[in-house]
C-alpha cells in the first residue's frame, strides 16, 4: 500500500499503526512558535476497537491500510466459523468467533451486516443497528401490564439475554437496538 503524508490526513483515513489497521477519528495541527509543526492524531484500532493517540512530525508518511467495509448477508455458523455472502456477486467470506466477537449474539440468518475487510480478510463484524428476534424463553407474561415500566429477562433465538417488559411472551418477535442491547418494541407482523 502507498505511504500517506500527514498533509493528507483526514477523518476516516485508514493507516497501519503498530502493525494494526487503524482509522483516523480526528487530527489536529499543532505548531509551537518558531519550531516544527506536528499532527496530533486519534485513531481507532479496527481490530480491537481501542482508541489510541499518536503524533507525527508534519510531513512524515505512514503506510495506508488496505481496509474496506462491505455489506454482507449472514448465512450460517458451522460452530467454528461464521459465513457471510455478498448479495450481488455471491462472494463468500468466513470470520472466526474472535472476529465476530460480541456481534455473534445478534446474528440472524439472512440479516445484512457490515464486514470490515483488511487485506481481503474479515477483521470486524458490525450487526445491523436494529434486529428483530424471537423470544425463546421468559417468565409468563402479565397481561395488561404495559405501564409499570418493570422488566424481566428474556432469551432470544440467538441466545442473547435482554430485558423486556413484563407483557412479552415466548414466541413473540421483538425489535432490539444492537448498539445498546436494549429492547425497542414489539415487532409488527
Amino acid at each position: 500500500m502507498p505511504n500517506i503524508n500527514t498533509n493528507e490526513f483526514r477523518a476516516g483515513l485508514k493507516l497501519m499503526i503498530d502493525g494494526d489497521p487503524c482509522s483516523i477519528i480526528e487530527n489536529e495541527f499543532v505548531k509551537p512558535g518558531k519550531g516544527q509543526a506536528f499532527v496530533r492524531t486519534r485513531f481507532r484500532n479496527l481490530k480491537n476497537r481501542r482508541v489510541i493517540e499518536r503524533t507525527f512530525k508534519s510531513g512524515e508518511s505512514m503506510e495506508a491500510a488496505d481496509v474496506m467495509e462491505v455489506e454482507l448477508q449472514y448465512l450460517y455458523s458451522d460452530g467454528e466459523m461464521y459465513h457471510f455472502m455478498h448479495a450481488g456477486n455471491f462472494e463468500q467470506h468466513a470470520a472466526d468467533a474472535e472476529t465476530v466477537a460480541d456481534a455473534a449474539q445478534w446474528l440472524k440468518e439472512q440479516d445484512t451486516c457490515i464486514i470490515t475487510l483488511w487485506n481481503g480478510a474479515p477483521i470486524a463484524v458490525t450487526p445491523p443497528n436494529f434486529v428483530t428476534l424471537e423470544i425463546t424463553e421468559t417468565d409468563p407474561g402479565l397481561r395488561g401490564d404495559t405501564a409499570s415500566g418493570a422488566t424481566k429477562p428474556a432469551t432470544v433465538q440467538t441466545g442473547a439475554v435482554i430485558k423486556v417488559p413484563l407483557f412479552i411472551e415466548v414466541g413473540e418477535s421483538v425489535k432490539i437496538d444492537t448498539r445498546t442491547g436494549e429492547y425497542v418494541s414489539r415487532a409488527k407482523g
Binding site: V30, P32, G33, G35, F38, R54, T55, K57
Partner: peptide
C-alpha cells in the same frame, strides 16, 4: 507523550518543540 521521535528521525530541537507544545505549554 505519543510522538515516535526516533521513527520521525527528529533532532534535539524537534523533540524540544514537541515537548514544549505537549508538556510545557
Amino acid at each position: 507523550y505519543r510522538f515516535d521521535s526516533r521513527r520521525a528521525k527528529a533532532d534535539r530541537d524537534t523533540c524540544l518543540d514537541w515537548l514544549l507544545a505537549e508538556v510545557v505549554q
